[in-house]
């Protein structure tokens, strides 16, 4: 996926001002945006998905302009065709695993019924080994099962890119290593482009085909970025 992004955003919280000023152009199947917490990684990812509106700039995905303040273009998140994996997965607590995974397939005002069978849903439930917990609610799942459910839900929509916000931060270290391997295999198998944001150097080692470092709202040279995390940790 080719990403061409140049955005500015000013956020105020009382007397504190945070300035996001990101410029990046990258092409690759696996892009890692790396930096300490509070560096603006999440905001950048949200701007790509359409969940945060920059003050000015542009965002282009594979040549399609999804945001351009100059031209007055701002596609809603619904129209951008990307999947977003939230840090704590944002599974719908009132729906079962099967309903969560099938969420995208039901249109209109109603959620999929709990007994509804759909080929694509069954395929992804099997692919992520979730058949046994399909009838359970998110609160009853383990951390790994939650992440798999969130991935399945995202992939049913056939996104053109997968955006992952600190995908392993909510997992314990042993599980983290296993899920890294799973995600690695999945990405290789599906060939869906992936953008991962993380503050964990091990994620960079596992997925860092293309690495961008961020610090204090800006993209910085890699060495400086690693150093800033080292100092912060």
């Amino acid at each position: 996926m080719r990403i061409d992004l140049e955005i500015r955003k000013e956020l105020r919280s009382g007397p504190r001002v945070f300035r996001l000023d990101v410029r990046l152009a990258t092409q690759g199947q696996r892009v890692v945006i790396f930096g300490p917490s509070g560096s603006g990684k999440s905001l950048t990812l949200k701007a790509i998905a359409g969940l945060m509106r920059p003050d000015e700039g542009h965002v282009r995905l594979d040549g399609t302009t999804v945001f351009d303040s100059g031209a007055g273009v701002n596609l809603p998140p619904q129209a951008r065709g990307v999947a977003y994996l939230f840090q704590d997965y944002a599974l719908f607590p009132h729906l079962t695993v099967r309903q969560n995974v099938g969420f995208v397939l039901a249109r209109g005002w109603l959620n999929p019924r709990s007994g509804e069978i759909h080929e694509a849903v069954d395929y992804w439930l099997a692919a992520f080994n979730l058949q046994d917990v399909a009838h359970q609610f998110p609160v009853e799942l383990s951390g790994g099962q939650r992440q798999r459910t969130a991935l399945a839900r995202a992939l049913v929509a056939r996104p053109r890119a997968l955006l992952l916000d600190e995908p392993f931060a909510a997992l314990d270290p042993a599980l983290r290593q296993r899920m890294r391997v799973e995600l690695d295999e999945l990405q290789t198998r599906l060939g869906v482009p992936m953008i991962i944001i993380t503050h964990d150097p091990e994620d960079v080692a596992a997925f860092g085909e293309q690495v961008l470092c961020m610090n204090e709202g800006q993209v910085v040279p890699q060495a400086q970025g690693l150093l800033s995390v080292g100092l912060a940790a």
Binding site: Q78, A83, Y84, D88, A90, A157
Partner: peptide
């Protein structure tokens, strides 16, 4: 949780 609404939006709802 506003994040759940955002999740639904990204899914195209």
């Amino acid at each position: 949780d506003g994040q759940l609404e955002q999740a639904a939006r990204v899914l195209g709802v």
